[in-house]
Design a binder for these strands. Structure first.
Lengths: 290, 290
DNA sequence: CAAGATTTCTGACTAAAGTCAGATATATGC
DNA sequence: GCATATATCTGACTTTAGTCAGAAATCTTG
């Protein structure tokens, strides 16, 4: 009754039948599922035919025919790739955009209906985030971004909110040494965001150009993505960026209230050093030589 | 980025591709999905051909052919139903049992692998329970059971644990008026368990034979199934059972720390009355005339 | 027991998905 | 420039799923 394996399998069954219902709803617009999937992939910005084929796992012959059928419906147009005429680029026509929007509307309404039937909205959404992250962890990509981008600012906002929750004395960015965005952009530094299917799941900043060492700042992983090794991946990526920038010494500060972070640093080759700044929040200081 | 609808859709995408992988794994044994599904349904104890057809949503012609193909492989045998020779009963042969076990082993290993890749095990399982309950709520059946059955005892254990967590002074069954199991079995009373795909999600007891009124006891809903109206359904079922048993007055006691329960009673026609017993735990008392 | 209903089976189809061996056009490396 | 690799397309298949009409056997009800 409490066996974890049966619980996972119960989840699988529940989800399989729900997904079955989801699939048939796509047939509501008089188009076979294959063609609908290709149309959606194009609508979501995948234009390269080969990329769509890989993404959907289709045979090239089948893919070709699906493209032809969408062309016959005048929903898409294909052109040759500008640098490589072997490759084809597919784009939605005006009618194709309308059709794509209709599919989007169906999906959005379904999602809304699902949510509206439940009073446990937040718990349900948190559970969905957790599972989507767990299932999609191989699909989590680390992208270098500007720390002023929407994605980065979302991560930083969540990071500050979490510090405020976890520090006894609260947290106010203005009182801490908030790094200048330019110090976390090449060529001085870097800012990396972990993105999973459009949702930011974590970040880390590399703040350079402050003399003999650079600093790791703002390491954060979304609660729904913890335990998947994402913190480690972000730190590795930041170190890689540091090496590319010719940085030899890295430092960071943290607080002993953030136990997981401290563990991560110790386990990945950082050594504790004495306080090297006067920021009021940290009480633990680390260094790593690359 | 935080839009609930996008979060639901991200979950759908993650799960659809995971389920896709799950489906193809069934093909790993060289049998089309349809036949594999029928074999599994029979293995899980569904023997009546018509029942399987309804469960899997298959056309009778298709079903018939799938049965033939499984028979050709000598994985199943069919016989006529003993009371109705039109109906057919399907059973696994020894080879069929081996094959079914192989499918079970694949599913179990997949579930185990999934869990072993994550350190957030308990959080993940809780999230899966929540979502499975939310998706499968139409499939939650209320079954009358003996309060000494495994399912009932699991529910009661969870119920006591929750009271212990939520009451400031803790909770010890021995100090409360624990009803005799016989008073919650027909013809005196009843005990109802909400089952969803093998997992007990809630319970309620109807304790009769104590004079001029019967009592509702042990109303519990699993955390993962709250907000789905299950408490209401359980109460309705208990009242229905009470009417069948000719009971005219129902009473119950509860504690103001269980706010949701109090709300439910008030909203479904119960009226508060003065204390009618000397149990140390409750501080709220209700009555309903049927 | 006759008429009608129910359950399963069979035959004759269609649609969709998927496979595979070339053909064609283009790019790349020596 | 030529051999080789790559990307897409076409034709000729097969498999799987699903539909539908009607046959055959059996049950139910008046």
């Amino acid at each position: 009754m409490l066996d974890p394996v049966s619980r996972v399998r119960r989840f699988n069954r529940a989800v399989t039948s729900a997904v079955g219902a989801l699939d048939t709803s796509f047939l509501g617009r008089g188009r076979p599922l294959g063609a609908a999937r290709v149309l959606n992939a194009i609508g979501h910005g995948r234009t390269d035919v080969g990329e769509i084929r890989d993404y959907l796992g289709l045979d090239s012959g089948l893919m070709s025919r699906l493209l032809r059928s969408l062309e016959d419906e005048e929903l898409i147009e294909t052109t040759a790739h500008e640098n490589d005429a072997r490759r084809r680029i597919a784009r939605l026509t005006a009618a194709g955009k309308r059709e794509f929007n209709a599919y989007e509307a169906i999906s959005n309404r379904q999602a809304k209906d699902f949510l509206s039937h439940h009073t446990q909205r937040e718990a349900l959404l948190a559970a969905m985030d957790l599972i989507a992250s767990a299932l999609g962890r191989d699909g989590t990509a680390l992208d270098e971004m500007d720390p002023r981008s929407d994605e980065a600012r979302y991560c930083l906002g969540e990071y500050y909110a979490e510090l405020a929750r976890r520090f006894k004395q609260g947290f106010d960015v203005k009182l801490s040494r908030d790094p200048d965005a330019k110090d976390m952009v090449r060529p001085r530094g870097s800012f990396i965001v972990a993105m999973s299917d459009g949702l930011p799941l974590g970040c880390v900043g590399l703040k350079g150009a402050s003399g003999e060492f650079a600093e790791i700042k703002r390491l954060w992983v979304a609660p729904s993505a913890r335990g998947l090794g994402l913190g480690r991946r972000l730190m590795d990526a930041a170190e890689r960026a540091a090496r590319e920038l010719g940085i030899e010494v890295l430092r960071l500060d943290t607080n002993s209230a953030l136990a997981e972070a401290g563990q991560l640093y110790r386990r990945s080759g950082w050594t504790e050093i004495p306080r090297f700044n006067d920021d009021p929040y940290p009480d633990l200081f680390f260094e790593k030589r690359l």
